[in-house]
Design a protein around this nucleic acid. Structure first.
Lengths: 346, 346
DNA sequence: TTGTATGCGTTATCAA
DNA sequence: TTGATAACGCATACAA
């Protein structure tokens, strides 16, 4: 078991100085062709590669990006990572992943671990607990220490960083408009509590669409699910709440759900009540996950383009990292959504 | 924008030496209580944290684990990562992710990037292309340079490393036995080409189960899908092949699929042929993804416990990293599967 | 053309 | 009780 070879060892073997080896390997014209070839041959033979850690220390750059997300077992987030990884790798960056599990403490700890030199910048989506507590000191501290952040999807406005979001309002509006055009009269929304920004915005889009079509919103049609805690019986609770929704609104004929799971569950409940989809009830979800594609009937959804969000976030971050000289200006990039029509709508 | 503070700066500010600061912060009894307090107070005020990179260089340990997987947008793999991250974090390790996208070249490049000092060891699942080419030099080189590897799921036997696998044969056997016990007479298997080890093993389990029950295997019931290339029309091709399967076997009444997608698609095709599930055709899949849980009817599957696989892999790797003195012995841990019965079987 | 010295941030050893 | 020095692996300004 031979350890990785270093400049020092090569220098000793060839009886030259370390700097000669270093220069020879970087093809410096300072070094004679003779020694250059000798050194390079030797290095190749022993498969020399410069040590990343040493380079990081020297350059004060790690060429790695830290990602903090609430969970990874989630189609949207893994898509985003995939997008980040794609452009990061293309530009010679690595990607290090930390999971907050929706917990404030884990988010803070993870960020602190990575911020101590391990990475050059963050791409992150905020944990629900953090949004609830509204404690954002860790973001501000990281930024004030000169480490840029790019937030995506679950963001907070008054933090000085680039942001990549989906046009939640517009996407929701398009979806609900579609339902209205398709003839739905009683359209429910299944959304999250308001502290989750995306839930709040999508609800706003829902309301705007109704208003545009002169439909008066009905409180009983708005279901705000509390998914703070993802517990064992979470699914049952969800199903139960949706059942109440259907019971309270006998003439319900359209459902807009702010995520895939809510949408799937709504379809399930509708079937339970003997409703046919899409003839009796039409359903539209948000997110382009696997569930939607392979559900029966397949689900019409507002596609978020997670991959593209990741790519854009990585581009923004890397640009910041490599153009520190530019004056500080932060942008919020909006990734357009698409309505993907499938079989849960007419 | 203040940079992160270093020992040197603290030393200068307090007019002491760097080593005094270092010792004071680590509560060394060499240092007088007076200076200790002074230094610690100052450090706290400026939120001093030792630089990870410098520590890594000094200790020749990065305390980070490299993960290389074929893709991340995949329930199984993200579960595994989640498991790895869980135990890694608990033991003070970080996790850095590289995606091979099933490509040999990307696998090699990614490993080389990380192996140059960025990480202490690998946890990986082999890309399909690598399995096809049977070129494993990069694994052997990494290992011979003293960097341990733990492989999971898609492994190769004759590499000197720990492995974590699922009892594919047994899991498949259990599933097929279940179908037989439930009265199926004509049981098909939808599997991958043999170069994918898990496909081969699950096929073996299928055959063994048949043999156990004195059923003669029929070639026309064995469909080996070639999923080397995940192209745009991949789904159509898959559906088409499965349709052929049903056409060639009119009395088909049981399907065992080696993954979730195959299983879902089989159900879809069965419905297309007017078959009721589970009355006419019973289906069992492999993998405990979201699709299975939320499909209609929900799918009976062999659960792989991806999270547990990740946890075990991380434990094995970290043990190797922290007990280098132990004699080299490699183990292959088998994680038991469970048959989760849902509505696609009687 | 080659080598020496310095620094990146830290810790450990040894000297004062 | 404190501080100077070396080392981790590399790159580079400067000296020879």
């Amino acid at each position: 078991m031979k350890r990785k070879i270093t400049l020092k060892q090569i220098a000793r073997e060839l009886d030259v100085s370390i700097s000669t080896v270093s220069k020879a390997l970087r093809n410096s014209s300072e070094i004679s062709e003779d020694t250059r070839e000798k050194v390079q041959a030797f290095a190749k033979l022993y498969n020399y590669r410069p040590n990343n850690i040493a380079l990081s220390l020297k350059n004060r750059k790690t060429k790695t990006i830290g990602i903090i997300i609430p969970e990874i077992v989630h189609h949207f987030f893994s898509k985003v990572i995939s997008g980040i990884e794609l452009v990061a790798n293309k530009k010679g960056y690595n990607v290090i992943v930390g999971l907050s599990n929706e917990s404030f403490d884990k988010e803070v700890i993870n960020m602190e671990m990575l911020a101590n030199g391990s990475i050059d910048g963050f791409i992150l989506s905020i944990a629900k607990e953090t949004l609830l507590q509204q404690d954002y000191h860790h973001f501000n501290e990281t930024i004030s220490q000169g480490m840029p952040i790019v937030m995506f999807d679950r963001i907070v406005n008054d933090i000085k960083c680039d942001k990549v979001i989906v046009d939640d309002v517009k996407g929701a509006k398009k979806a609900v408009a579609k339902l209205i055009e398709n003839g739905c009269k009683q359209i429910a929304i299944i959304t999250t509590k308001d502290y989750v920004s995306v839930g709040r915005l999508r609800t706003q889009g829902y309301l705007e669409a109704l208003e545009d079509h002169k439909i008066h919103p009905k409180a009983s049609l708005i279901l705000k699910v509390d998914d703070k805690l993802v517990s064992e019986d979470y699914l049952d609770v969800l199903e139960n709440e949706i059942e109440q929704l259907f019971k309270q609104n006998k003439k319900l004929d359209g459902v807009f759900a702010v995520n895939e799971l809510y949408a799937i569950t709504a379809m399930k409940v509708a079937r339970k009540f003997g409703k046919h989809i899409p003839n009796d009830v039409q359903v539209i979800g948000f997110t382009d996950g696997v569930l939607s594609k392979h559900a029966t009937p397949s689900l019409t959804t507002v596609s978020q383009h997670g991959q593209k969000i990741g790519e854009k976030a990585a581009e923004l971050l890397i640009h910041k990292l490599e153009h520190e000289e530019e004056e500080e200006r932060f942008q919020t990039v909006i990734i357009e959504t698409d309505l993907i029509e499938r079989d849960s709508t007419k």
